[in-house]
């Protein structure tokens, strides 16, 4: 019961926070250069991790698909199936998991320590709006950066798949790539991009929310980080389901 109540409390505070962020955005959007510097910062810190994990996610999916396809002797389909499976679903999901740690936890730790060291209060006292000065550049920057990182990670997953199919399933690269378009349709690509946008928004909003909410000492920062990474993963899985439903509906409608 306690868990449920605190969950509902957090949910309410989260939507109030979103409302405040949006109304601030409409009233006084942040300067572009601050957003760019945030995007750059996120890129610098996460590019390596994203490519690394994207690569292995692709490799894992290829192994799994290859083992299943082998039963039917339909190795030709490997390229299409594993690429489509990775792009549509598993790629965005797992890479977003990773980014929620890398970007989300980092940002909430940063905001959390600004909060507990009274920097956020100082900003208010010096006549500035912390939502506009601190939260918005990060919020927008992380949405943009995470989206591009997700797409970039999925690209690396494709490379991982190509390489693994060559090493593991004896499907040569040309054969692999040739079969990609037969199964990877526009809707699959759309699904991947759509999920990336949604996940990017979830990560950006949750990490700024929990970081901004932190109060207390050093422990509160740790708590904010833990809450952020759990809330990110949890909502990513739920949103994964939700977006799959939407894509499914669109697919049928087409």
């Amino acid at each position: 019961m306690q868990i449920l109540r605190s969950f509902v409390d957090d949910l309410g505070l989260y939507f109030l926070f979103l409302k405040e962020v949006f109304s601030t955005f409409c009233k006084s959007p942040p300067e572009k250069k601050y957003i760019y510097s945030q995007v750059l910062k996120v890129f610098q810190s996460s590019l390596l991790t994203t490519s690394f994990s994207g690569f292995f996610v692709g490799a894992i999916m290829t192994i799994q698909f290859a083992m299943q396809i082998k039963m039917f002797g339909a190795s030709g389909y490997l390229g299409g199936l594993s690429t489509s499976g990775t792009v549509r679903e598993v790629g965005p999901l797992l890479i977003a998991f990773l980014l929620s740690g890398k970007v989300g936890a980092y940002t909430s730790a940063e905001l959390g320590s600004m909060k507990v060291s009274e920097q956020i209060d100082a900003i208010r006292c010096l006549g500035a709006n912390p939502i506009q000065e601190i939260i918005l550049p990060r919020f927008i920057g992380i949405i943009l950066a995470s989206f591009f990182l997700l797409v970039y990670g999925i690209l690396f997953a494709f490379y991982g798949g190509v390489l693994m199919s060559y090493i593991f399933a004896d499907v040569n690269t040309l054969e692999y790539v040739r079969h990609v378009p037969t199964i990877m349709t526009g809707i699959s690509l759309f699904s991947g991009v759509f999920k990336s946008i949604v996940f990017a928004f979830a990560i950006a909003s949750l990490c700024t929310f929990y970081g901004y909410k932190a109060s207390g000492g050093a422990k509160a920062v740790g708590k904010a980080v833990v809450s952020t990474s759990v809330a990110c993963m949890f909502s990513i899985v739920i949103l994964d389901w939700f977006t799959t439903l939407i894509v499914d509906v669109i697919n049928r409608w087409l």
Partner: peptide
């Protein structure tokens, strides 16, 4: 207000 911690950015 001068804060308890320096609270510099």
């Amino acid at each position: 207000l001068v804060f308890q911690q320096p609270a510099l950015f």
